[in-house]
Design a protein around this nucleic acid. Structure first.
Lengths: 154, 154
DNA sequence: GTAACTGCAAAATATTTGCATCCTT
DNA sequence: AAGGATGCAAATATTTTGCAGTTAC
């Protein structure tokens, strides 16, 4: 298949788009990878290894899921999100991230009730004033509280 | 010992101050707790369980360290810091935190070179605009890059 | 003396690595 | 056919829990 050249590698809706997307990131096409990317697309909140295993009903080996996430991370498809717990969460990169450049400055919200981690793309944290003698590569804000769903659910 | 009443429970320099501090937080005084608080005071960067074990030269059982951290966390002496890794880091609360109220809105900087996590107290992230339908209890910003020490060390 | 803290054992959870086998290109 | 991806086994790291012995108040 011919892979279109593009600076802005965007993730389309159809499975065909998804295959192109993976190829653009120089990843081989496998059932695992397609399924896990689809999961990320469906989910509005961040995912951790454990959660992916459950959502795929243990269709794939736990280790395969770890390795898939590592491959996605390395090629800039997903990014890690800092958490207060001891498991690493990931979410799809919305921007123009790839192996070489990773732009990932945004807000993350962790709900204290349901535990979901949600990327809030609209907000921008570049307004934060930084100390002079530090070089900043990446900025992440973690907000915690009660999310919109849990609030209305009471 | 008479424990002075105070709204602003502050941590003093001497070991005597430290004992008063622990009592104000309704914690019994033990060798472990004194040593670990002292460690936090000495260290300008955040500590994880592992690191505390090493710094105390395994003087205390690993499990005791975990439980000490939990006690400190519960009484508002320390706060957890979100990380990209799978171990939980803690730092002393500088403000007026206690069992009931926890004010902890500040910047955390993680150095990509030396791995240190540093609390940058001066900066304030309350200026971040938040979505309307979310209730925020706590805000934390994680900046990563190169810290002042590693920068000059080259 | 009583309640709380500590240490050992054991278990649960999260993640990594090695190797043989299978799938993608 | 070759290289990469997968799955199983095994190992490591982090954290939690139970229980008996010790310490703080």
């Amino acid at each position: 298949m011919r892979v279109p050249e593009s600076k802005n590698i965007a993730l389309g809706e159809t499975q065909q788009d998804l295959i192109i997307f993976l190829k653009q990131h120089h990843l081989t096409i496998t059932k695992t990878r397609i399924k896990i990317i689809e999961l990320f697309q469906e989910s509005e909140s961040a995912l951790e290894n454990n959660l992916i295993e459950k959502k795929t009903q243990h269709q794939f080996d736990r280790i395969t899921v770890y390795r898939t996430l590592q491959a996605f991370l390395k090629t800039g498809i997903i990014h890690a999100i800092p958490t207060y717990s001891n498991s690493i969460r990931y979410a799809l990169c919305k921007g123009d991230c790839n192996e070489h450049a990773h732009i990932d400055n945004h807000l993350h919200f962790i709900c204290e009730k349901c535990g979901k981690t949600i990327c809030l793309d609209k907000a921008d944290i570049s307004i934060i004033q930084l100390p002079k003698d530090y070089t900043i590569h990446k900025a992440d804000a973690i907000l915690s509280g009660i999310c919109n769903v849990c609030k209305t659910a009471k």
